Amino acid sequence: MRPNIRGSLGGFLTCGLLITGAVIVGHDGNEKPGLPSGPYVALGDSYTAGPGIPAKRGSPAGCERSDHNYPALVADSFDVRAGDFHDVRCSGATVTDLTAPQTTSDGTNPPQLSALSERTRLVTLGIGGNDIGFGAMIKRCVGAGALYRILGGGKYLPEEAPCKRQYLSHGTDEVQRRIDSTGERLTSALRDIRRRAPRAHVYVVGYPEILPSDSGACLRSMFLAPGDVMFLREEEQRLNTMLRERAEAGGADYVDTFTPSRGHGACAAADVRWIEPLTPAAPAAPVHPNAHAERGMADAVVSALKKALTK
Protein backbone atom coordinates (compact mmCIF):
# COMPACT_ATOMS: atom_id res chain seq x y z
CA MET A 1 0.00 0.00 0.00
CA ARG A 2 1.05 3.59 -0.35
CA PRO A 3 3.22 5.08 2.39
CA ASN A 4 1.23 8.28 2.97
CA ILE A 5 -2.41 8.47 4.02
CA ARG A 6 -2.71 11.71 2.11
CA GLY A 7 -1.64 10.10 -1.15
CA SER A 8 -3.65 6.90 -0.92
CA LEU A 9 -3.13 4.56 1.78
CA GLY A 10 -0.27 -24.41 -2.25
CA GLY A 11 2.48 -26.28 -2.39
CA PHE A 12 5.58 -26.14 -4.51
CA LEU A 13 5.12 -25.17 -8.11
CA THR A 14 4.91 -28.42 -10.00
CA CYS A 15 8.18 -27.98 -11.83
CA GLY A 16 10.34 -30.59 -10.16
CA LEU A 17 11.69 -28.47 -7.28
CA LEU A 18 12.67 -30.53 -4.26
CA ILE A 19 13.55 -28.81 -0.98
CA THR A 20 15.17 -30.76 1.82
CA GLY A 21 15.55 -29.76 5.44
CA ALA A 22 19.26 -28.90 5.28
CA VAL A 23 20.86 -26.97 8.13
CA ILE A 24 23.65 -24.42 7.71
CA VAL A 25 25.62 -22.30 10.13
CA GLY A 26 24.74 -18.60 9.84
CA HIS A 27 27.02 -15.60 10.17
CA ASP A 28 26.04 -15.31 13.84
CA GLY A 29 27.20 -18.86 14.54
CA ASN A 30 23.67 -20.22 15.01
CA GLU A 31 22.24 -23.06 12.99
CA LYS A 32 19.65 -21.95 10.44
CA PRO A 33 17.47 -24.00 8.09
CA GLY A 34 18.92 -23.95 4.60
CA LEU A 35 17.12 -22.95 1.44
CA PRO A 36 18.15 -24.38 -1.93
CA SER A 37 20.94 -22.40 -3.52
CA GLY A 38 19.65 -19.65 -5.75
CA PRO A 39 18.07 -16.20 -5.56
CA TYR A 40 15.24 -15.01 -3.36
CA VAL A 41 13.16 -12.26 -5.01
CA ALA A 42 10.85 -10.09 -2.89
CA LEU A 43 7.96 -8.45 -4.75
CA GLY A 44 5.26 -6.13 -3.47
CA ASP A 45 4.05 -2.79 -2.17
CA SER A 46 4.73 -0.61 0.89
CA TYR A 47 3.48 -3.20 3.40
CA THR A 48 6.48 -5.29 2.29
CA ALA A 49 8.82 -2.32 1.71
CA GLY A 50 8.41 -0.88 5.22
CA PRO A 51 8.48 2.91 4.60
CA GLY A 52 9.71 4.94 7.55
CA ILE A 53 11.33 1.99 9.34
CA PRO A 54 15.09 2.62 9.72
CA ALA A 55 17.15 2.32 7.72
CA LYS A 56 16.27 3.10 4.14
CA ARG A 57 18.22 1.25 1.49
CA GLY A 58 18.27 0.54 -2.24
CA SER A 59 17.15 2.52 -5.24
CA PRO A 60 15.12 4.26 -6.33
CA ALA A 61 14.84 6.12 -3.05
CA GLY A 62 11.14 6.74 -3.71
CA CYS A 63 10.37 3.07 -3.11
CA GLU A 64 11.07 3.64 0.61
CA ARG A 65 12.55 0.20 1.27
CA SER A 66 13.68 -0.57 4.79
CA ASP A 67 16.51 -2.93 5.65
CA HIS A 68 14.32 -4.27 8.47
CA ASN A 69 11.20 -5.18 6.53
CA TYR A 70 9.97 -8.75 6.51
CA PRO A 71 11.69 -9.96 3.31
CA ALA A 72 15.06 -8.75 4.65
CA LEU A 73 14.35 -10.53 7.94
CA VAL A 74 13.33 -13.70 6.10
CA ALA A 75 16.54 -13.59 4.05
CA ASP A 76 18.55 -13.22 7.26
CA SER A 77 16.70 -16.07 8.95
CA PHE A 78 17.77 -18.43 6.18
CA ASP A 79 21.21 -16.88 5.74
CA VAL A 80 20.51 -16.00 2.10
CA ARG A 81 23.66 -14.57 0.56
CA ALA A 82 23.53 -10.84 -0.19
CA GLY A 83 24.01 -11.46 -3.89
CA ASP A 84 21.07 -13.84 -3.92
CA PHE A 85 18.59 -11.50 -2.22
CA HIS A 86 16.86 -9.29 -4.78
CA ASP A 87 14.75 -6.59 -3.16
CA VAL A 88 12.51 -4.96 -5.79
CA ARG A 89 9.37 -4.12 -3.80
CA CYS A 90 8.20 -0.53 -3.93
CA SER A 91 5.80 1.66 -1.97
CA GLY A 92 2.70 2.46 -3.96
CA ALA A 93 3.02 -0.59 -6.21
CA THR A 94 0.02 -2.21 -7.88
CA VAL A 95 -0.18 -5.53 -9.72
CA THR A 96 0.44 -3.59 -12.94
CA ASP A 97 3.82 -2.46 -11.58
CA LEU A 98 4.99 -6.06 -11.50
CA THR A 99 5.33 -5.94 -15.29
CA ALA A 100 5.72 -2.20 -16.00
CA PRO A 101 8.06 0.54 -14.71
CA GLN A 102 6.75 2.42 -11.68
CA THR A 103 7.36 6.14 -11.30
CA THR A 104 7.95 7.23 -7.70
CA SER A 105 8.56 10.61 -6.08
CA ASP A 106 12.28 9.94 -6.39
CA GLY A 107 13.20 7.72 -9.32
CA THR A 108 11.66 4.95 -11.40
CA ASN A 109 11.48 1.34 -10.27
CA PRO A 110 11.91 -1.22 -13.08
CA PRO A 111 9.20 -3.84 -13.61
CA GLN A 112 9.47 -6.00 -10.52
CA LEU A 113 9.23 -9.30 -12.39
CA SER A 114 12.37 -8.38 -14.33
CA ALA A 115 14.31 -9.55 -11.25
CA LEU A 116 13.13 -13.14 -11.80
CA SER A 117 15.07 -15.78 -13.68
CA GLU A 118 15.27 -19.52 -14.10
CA ARG A 119 17.72 -19.50 -11.16
CA THR A 120 15.17 -17.99 -8.75
CA ARG A 121 14.24 -20.40 -5.98
CA LEU A 122 12.03 -18.32 -3.67
CA VAL A 123 9.50 -15.54 -4.34
CA THR A 124 7.37 -13.65 -1.84
CA LEU A 125 4.64 -11.35 -3.09
CA GLY A 126 2.56 -8.91 -1.04
CA ILE A 127 0.30 -6.74 -3.17
CA GLY A 128 -3.31 -5.76 -3.89
CA GLY A 129 -4.10 -2.98 -1.41
CA ASN A 130 -3.32 -0.18 -3.83
CA ASP A 131 -5.25 -1.89 -6.61
CA ILE A 132 -8.47 -1.66 -4.63
CA GLY A 133 -7.63 1.84 -3.39
CA PHE A 134 -7.58 0.86 0.28
CA GLY A 135 -5.52 3.86 1.32
CA ALA A 136 -7.95 6.20 -0.42
CA MET A 137 -10.81 4.37 1.26
CA ILE A 138 -9.33 5.02 4.69
CA LYS A 139 -8.78 8.67 3.83
CA ARG A 140 -12.36 9.02 2.64
CA CYS A 141 -13.76 7.28 5.69
CA VAL A 142 -11.70 9.43 8.06
CA GLY A 143 -13.15 12.52 6.39
CA ALA A 144 -16.68 11.17 6.54
CA GLY A 145 -16.25 10.24 10.19
CA ALA A 146 -14.87 13.63 11.14
CA LEU A 147 -17.75 15.42 9.41
CA TYR A 148 -20.33 13.15 11.01
CA ARG A 149 -18.80 13.75 14.43
CA ILE A 150 -18.99 17.53 13.96
CA LEU A 151 -22.59 17.40 12.81
CA GLY A 152 -23.48 14.95 15.59
CA GLY A 153 -22.10 17.09 18.36
CA GLY A 154 -19.03 14.96 18.94
CA LYS A 155 -20.88 11.65 19.22
CA TYR A 156 -21.29 8.57 17.04
CA LEU A 157 -24.15 6.09 17.00
CA PRO A 158 -22.82 2.53 17.53
CA GLU A 159 -23.70 1.34 14.02
CA GLU A 160 -23.17 4.58 12.15
CA ALA A 161 -21.23 4.09 8.89
CA PRO A 162 -21.36 7.26 6.74
CA CYS A 163 -18.48 6.11 4.55
CA LYS A 164 -19.82 2.61 3.91
CA ARG A 165 -22.98 4.08 2.42
CA GLN A 166 -20.89 5.86 -0.20
CA TYR A 167 -19.38 2.59 -1.44
CA LEU A 168 -22.64 0.63 -1.44
CA SER A 169 -24.85 3.20 -3.12
CA HIS A 170 -27.29 2.46 -5.96
CA GLY A 171 -27.26 -1.26 -5.27
CA THR A 172 -23.65 -1.75 -6.35
CA ASP A 173 -20.66 -2.96 -4.34
CA GLU A 174 -17.77 -0.89 -5.69
CA VAL A 175 -15.13 -2.47 -3.46
CA GLN A 176 -16.05 -6.03 -4.44
CA ARG A 177 -15.81 -5.05 -8.09
CA ARG A 178 -12.29 -3.76 -7.46
CA ILE A 179 -11.31 -6.91 -5.57
CA ASP A 180 -12.56 -9.12 -8.39
CA SER A 181 -10.68 -7.09 -10.99
CA THR A 182 -7.50 -7.20 -8.91
CA GLY A 183 -7.87 -10.96 -8.59
CA GLU A 184 -7.91 -11.37 -12.36
CA ARG A 185 -4.70 -9.34 -12.69
CA LEU A 186 -3.08 -11.32 -9.88
CA THR A 187 -3.88 -14.61 -11.61
CA SER A 188 -2.16 -13.34 -14.74
CA ALA A 189 0.85 -12.15 -12.70
CA LEU A 190 1.22 -15.54 -11.01
CA ARG A 191 1.26 -17.23 -14.42
CA ASP A 192 3.99 -14.80 -15.48
CA ILE A 193 6.00 -15.56 -12.32
CA ARG A 194 5.75 -19.29 -13.05
CA ARG A 195 6.91 -18.71 -16.64
CA ARG A 196 9.89 -16.56 -15.62
CA ALA A 197 10.90 -18.57 -12.54
CA PRO A 198 9.72 -22.15 -13.16
CA ARG A 199 11.79 -23.62 -10.30
CA ALA A 200 10.72 -21.14 -7.63
CA HIS A 201 8.50 -21.67 -4.62
CA VAL A 202 6.06 -18.76 -4.55
CA TYR A 203 4.35 -17.32 -1.46
CA VAL A 204 1.57 -14.74 -1.61
CA VAL A 205 1.61 -12.88 1.71
CA GLY A 206 -1.64 -11.42 3.02
CA TYR A 207 -2.15 -8.17 4.92
CA PRO A 208 -2.04 -7.97 8.73
CA GLU A 209 -4.93 -6.68 10.81
CA ILE A 210 -5.22 -2.93 10.26
CA LEU A 211 -8.42 -2.19 12.20
CA PRO A 212 -9.84 -4.09 15.20
CA SER A 213 -13.09 -5.93 15.82
CA ASP A 214 -13.74 -3.46 18.65
CA SER A 215 -14.74 -0.36 16.69
CA GLY A 216 -14.86 1.86 19.77
CA ALA A 217 -11.08 1.67 20.12
CA CYS A 218 -10.62 3.75 16.96
CA LEU A 219 -12.57 6.89 17.81
CA ARG A 220 -9.55 8.79 19.08
CA SER A 221 -6.65 7.48 17.00
CA MET A 222 -8.35 7.10 13.60
CA PHE A 223 -11.47 9.35 13.75
CA LEU A 224 -13.57 6.62 12.15
CA ALA A 225 -17.27 6.08 12.77
CA PRO A 226 -17.85 2.69 14.45
CA GLY A 227 -19.67 1.18 11.49
CA ASP A 228 -16.93 2.27 9.12
CA VAL A 229 -14.28 0.56 11.25
CA MET A 230 -16.12 -2.70 10.73
CA PHE A 231 -16.70 -1.93 7.05
CA LEU A 232 -12.99 -1.36 6.39
CA ARG A 233 -12.00 -4.40 8.45
CA GLU A 234 -14.40 -6.60 6.47
CA GLU A 235 -13.11 -5.25 3.16
CA GLU A 236 -9.54 -6.06 4.15
CA GLN A 237 -10.61 -9.59 5.04
CA ARG A 238 -12.32 -9.92 1.67
CA LEU A 239 -9.10 -8.79 -0.01
CA ASN A 240 -7.12 -11.39 1.94
CA THR A 241 -9.63 -14.09 1.00
CA MET A 242 -9.18 -13.22 -2.66
CA LEU A 243 -5.39 -13.34 -2.30
CA ARG A 244 -5.61 -16.78 -0.70
CA GLU A 245 -7.93 -18.18 -3.35
CA ARG A 246 -5.95 -16.78 -6.28
CA ALA A 247 -2.67 -17.97 -4.78
CA GLU A 248 -3.88 -21.51 -4.31
CA ALA A 249 -5.46 -21.60 -7.78
CA GLY A 250 -2.18 -20.34 -9.25
CA GLY A 251 0.03 -22.99 -7.64
CA ALA A 252 1.42 -20.72 -4.92
CA ASP A 253 1.18 -20.86 -1.13
CA TYR A 254 -0.62 -18.24 0.94
CA VAL A 255 0.82 -16.82 4.16
CA ASP A 256 -1.76 -15.59 6.67
CA THR A 257 -0.49 -12.57 8.61
CA PHE A 258 -3.96 -11.42 9.72
CA THR A 259 -4.40 -14.12 12.36
CA PRO A 260 -1.08 -13.57 14.20
CA SER A 261 -1.64 -9.79 14.13
CA ARG A 262 -5.08 -9.82 15.81
CA GLY A 263 -5.19 -7.24 18.55
CA HIS A 264 -2.18 -5.39 17.14
CA GLY A 265 -3.89 -3.04 14.67
CA ALA A 266 -3.68 0.73 14.36
CA CYS A 267 -6.06 1.35 17.28
CA ALA A 268 -4.18 -0.78 19.82
CA ALA A 269 -1.91 0.64 22.50
CA ALA A 270 1.41 1.99 21.26
CA ASP A 271 3.45 -0.73 22.96
CA VAL A 272 1.61 -3.62 21.28
CA ARG A 273 0.42 -2.37 17.92
CA TRP A 274 1.90 -3.48 14.61
CA ILE A 275 0.19 -0.82 12.50
CA GLU A 276 0.73 2.85 13.26
CA PRO A 277 -2.32 5.17 13.30
CA LEU A 278 -2.75 8.47 11.43
CA THR A 279 -0.08 10.05 13.63
CA PRO A 280 2.64 7.42 14.09
CA ALA A 281 4.32 7.09 17.47
CA ALA A 282 7.01 4.75 16.11
CA PRO A 283 9.09 5.06 12.92
CA ALA A 284 6.66 4.10 10.14
CA ALA A 285 4.36 5.69 7.60
CA PRO A 286 0.77 6.50 8.69
CA VAL A 287 -1.49 3.41 8.73
CA HIS A 288 1.47 1.19 7.87
CA PRO A 289 3.47 -1.55 9.59
CA ASN A 290 6.10 -0.68 12.17
CA ALA A 291 9.16 -2.76 12.99
CA HIS A 292 7.13 -5.08 15.26
CA ALA A 293 4.80 -5.85 12.35
CA GLU A 294 7.62 -6.58 9.93
CA ARG A 295 9.12 -9.01 12.46
CA GLY A 296 5.72 -10.63 13.00
CA MET A 297 5.12 -10.99 9.26
CA ALA A 298 8.64 -12.38 8.81
CA ASP A 299 7.91 -14.98 11.49
CA ALA A 300 4.78 -16.04 9.60
CA VAL A 301 6.70 -16.45 6.35
CA VAL A 302 9.58 -18.29 8.06
CA SER A 303 7.09 -20.65 9.69
CA ALA A 304 5.53 -21.43 6.32
CA LEU A 305 8.94 -22.04 4.78
CA LYS A 306 10.04 -24.33 7.61
CA LYS A 307 6.92 -26.44 7.12
CA ALA A 308 7.84 -26.80 3.46
CA LEU A 309 11.42 -27.72 4.34
CA THR A 310 10.27 -30.63 6.51
CA LYS A 311 7.86 -32.12 3.98
Rank of each mutant, 00 (worst) to 15 (best):
K32P: 02
R194L: 01
T259K: 13
P39Y: 01
F78T: 09
G129E: 01
I53V: 15
R194D: 10
D180M: 06
V175M: 13
A144G: 06
R177E: 12
G251F: 04
M297H: 04
R199W: 00
P39K: 03
L73S: 05
L211S: 00
R196I: 03
G29A: 07
P212Q: 03
P158W: 04
L186W: 07
S261D: 01
A42N: 01
S188P: 00
R57K: 13
K32G: 08
R81E: 10
G34R: 11
S59I: 14
G183A: 06
C267V: 06
L224K: 02
V23I: 15
L168Y: 08
L43C: 07
R185I: 12
G38M: 02
G227E: 05
D76W: 06
R178C: 03
Y254E: 01
P33W: 08
V23A: 14
D192V: 02
W274N: 06
L219F: 06
E248V: 11
P226E: 02
G38F: 01
G251N: 07
C90S: 04
A300P: 08
R165Y: 14
S105Q: 13
S213N: 13
E236K: 11
H27C: 12
S117G: 14
S8Y: 09
R81F: 05
G143W: 10
P158Q: 02
F12I: 11
D271K: 11
D84V: 02
T279I: 14
P260A: 08
A249C: 09
G171E: 12
D271N: 12
Q166G: 00
D180Y: 03
M242T: 14
R273T: 03
V272G: 14
G34P: 04
E294N: 14
P3L: 04
N69L: 05
R295M: 09
Q112M: 11
N30E: 13
S221C: 12
Q102L: 07
E248D: 10
I210C: 03
Y156P: 04
C63A: 09
P286G: 06
L13A: 14
Q166E: 13
R140P: 00
R273G: 10
F12E: 14
S221V: 13
G135E: 11
R165P: 05
G126Q: 15
A268Y: 01
R178Q: 15
L122Q: 06
S114M: 07
Y254K: 07
R273M: 09
V74S: 04
G21R: 15
T187C: 05
E31T: 15
F85C: 12
S221H: 07
L168P: 06
E245M: 15
L224E: 03
Q166A: 12
V302E: 13
A247V: 00
Q102H: 03
Y47A: 08
F78G: 08
G227N: 09
G265Q: 05
A304Y: 00
I275H: 01
G26F: 02
G16C: 08
N109F: 09
C15H: 12
Y203F: 15
T241L: 10
A200W: 08
W274M: 06
R185N: 12
S66P: 02
R149E: 08
L278W: 00
D79Y: 05
K164Y: 08
C63S: 05
G135N: 07
L309F: 08
Y70M: 04
T108E: 13
E235N: 15
A200Q: 09
